[in-house]
Design a protein around this nucleic acid. Structure first.
Lengths: 350, 350
DNA sequence: CACTCCTTTTAGATCGATCTAAGTACCATG
DNA sequence: CATGGTACTTAGATCGATCTAAAAGGAGTG
């Protein structure tokens, strides 16, 4: 199965920065080399006030010579605050990747670092959060948590949830007004002349219930309550495929579909086109999230945009403020306005 | 833009596990409560030999009562070995997500923990690796590294690369024999009667050069060297779309395409079908990686499978062995055999 | 010269765990 | 009763940083 062959010797061997001992250099080594005390060296490394220009220079030089890198464990241990924010996310979700990107940016701005903890099939939300607590994170951001797993063990740190609707969480929360988003989608389709609008929902996934409610509400308000129809699904491409097959096999096609999220919408789109259905000519499709691939030229999905950057920024801000002002006090909910992005997967009815 | 409303008070307030002080409980607290010394408590928590059954019980109980959680920073600082393996990956790559899932499993088996560090546009490979070093990781696994960024700063820990071909790395490496994989793809297509086989390559991405070489070699061996044709691309869906447009606009379509990876293949597939081209009737498509969505019912992509689980396991093993046996010694390369997975995107020529 | 004030430096305690080496009990054995 | 062994337990050093409080070195002032 696997072949294995030996080759060049290790490149990390003749490293000039290694201080002889092979041991990684500590602040003590730097201080000694610079001819100052550990305390002074520490101040210089942290860019704190105190040391003279001359000391600064010498310590900097010594640190560079030795290839010194502060030991995070030691810093964490000693510092009152770890300046770490833990982030739980699902490895397989593209929208989470977008959020993470923005979380890195947002935490950097406020002077914090990020610790990631992925949820994968073999590693549930609980394990993921425990890992974050053990890592001494000062605050935790949960992206798309499905279980309220954090309520039942003593989390002593502020928690902010991204993506879960307000009434489902006891923590600070940032989310997009998903009901409003679904309404936007329906309004858009109705304005294009559609009446037969189906919703492929997201089952139990975070936000799905709200999107469903928004869809039903909007249909009702347009006098289409009787024609509302919800096809079960989840947030995966696969469920989009399956929904497409359901629609194709059961009676006449609707003229438009509001999908639970973009991945589902993409699955729908691919499968419908594969079956020879013109999109948007025969069926219009609206997604939700505006993930990267929705923007790609020839998926070109009309979708309800969630502003990942803004969500990440607000979540980080909320966490930091709670750190500054204490855990007590009302939980806060930030509800962002969704934004309809009209692209090529929707069009007027014939 | 954002609305904010106050609501229920924080749920983390009346937590019974908080030991009054609000401070997170330490081993000292546990020991005191159990009426033993810190040392004994430590032994119990670590499941080490020594303490009597009675002590064990009392410490366990005390720890549970207090909601004690060991402080990773303190453990890391004191322990000779941190038992951490750092993993660099790209947030947006689905195949990386598959690998991470398996890396978690593999590290757990050997008693290590994982520290993730994502590469995103605002946070290059160098930053990502620096974060891992600062975190005291004993070894580093680089998934799909593009720069040899780790050679130039003094990395004193073993590094294993996943996905980069052997001649491009000075570290231990695990990869799939990509040239062989491309050959498998071509052989498969030729056996179906195809002669006009185009390759959409991956540019500078890890493994792309090998796949290209394997494609060219296989074409030559089948006497099709003169008909070989490489369309530039990268590993994204977008490049698949663009390649499709290139193919559609420039002369007669080939009868088959070997894509640089699955995402590219999926982009091709969608766009060709969108343009009314029957896949696999008119054009057959082979991908590379076998990512999750390739398996989905109606993408149903014929592809060259990389065994993510095996790759992760080998990488982790290689790292651990180097930790046990020292950094010196020949670098090792594990070259996994790729495996052709025939699904519905390829068929015989007409 | 004695005094304060300011800048710069530093010794030593500390964070919360692990690890070493020594201590205590208790029992059996010569 | 001394001796050795076994089973547990623990005090204290230690990891590598930060932080506090005090010391050291001028410089200015009456």
């Amino acid at each position: 199965m696997s072949t294995q062959k030996a080759s060049r010797p290790s490149g990390a061997k003749d490293d000039p920065s290694a201080a002889g001992s092979g041991r990684r250099p500590t602040l003590m080594d730097v201080a000694r080399r610079a001819g100052v005390s550990r305390a002074t060296a520490s101040l210089v490394i942290r860019d704190a006030a105190g040391p003279s220009a001359e000391s600064r220079e010498r310590v900097r030089q010594a640190a560079a010579d030795l290839g010194y890198r502060p030991d995070l464990a030691a810093q964490l241990l000693r510092r009152r605050n770890s300046r770490l924010i833990g982030v739980m996310f699902s490895a397989q979700e593209p929208f989470h990747a977008d959020l993470i990107e923005s979380v890195y940016a947002a935490t950097e701005e406020v002077g914090y670092d990020v610790v990631l903890s992925a949820v994968v099939p073999s590693r549930g939300e609980r394990r993921a959060v425990e890992a974050l607590i053990t890592s001494r994170c000062e605050a935790i951001v949960l992206i798309g948590a499905r279980e309220a797993c954090t309520t039942d063990f003593g989390v002593q740190v502020p928690v902010v949830e991204i993506g879960r609707p307000p009434n489902e969480t006891v923590f600070d929360a940032v989310h997009t007004a998903d009901d409003e988003g679904a309404r936007l989608a329906v309004d858009h389709l109705v304005s294009l002349g559609h009446h037969d609008i189906v919703h492929v929902d997201g089952g139990e996934r975070p936000g799905a219930a709200e999107r469903r409610a928004g869809y039903l509400d909007a249909m009702r308000r347009h006098g289409l309550g009787g024609r509302a129809r919800v096809v079960p699904g989840d947030y995966t491409e696969l469920s989009g495929f399956e929904a497409a097959r359901t629609l194709l096999s059961a009676g006449p096609l609707p003229t438009a579909v509001v999908a639970g999220n973009d991945q589902c919408a993409i699955g729908l789109l691919i499968e419908l086109r594969h079956a020879g259905v013109d999109v948007p000519g025969r069926v219009s499709i609206v997604g939700y999230d505006d993930i990267r691939s929705a923007r790609l030229a020839h998926i070109d999905l009309t979708t309800v945009r969630q502003d990942a950057e803004q969500m990440a920024r607000l979540a980080v801000q909320a966490a930091v403020e709670r750190l500054d002002n204490g855990l007590d006090g009302e939980t806060r909910e930030f509800s962002l306005a969704p934004q309809l992005v009209v692209r090529g997967s929707t069009g007027p009815t014939r």
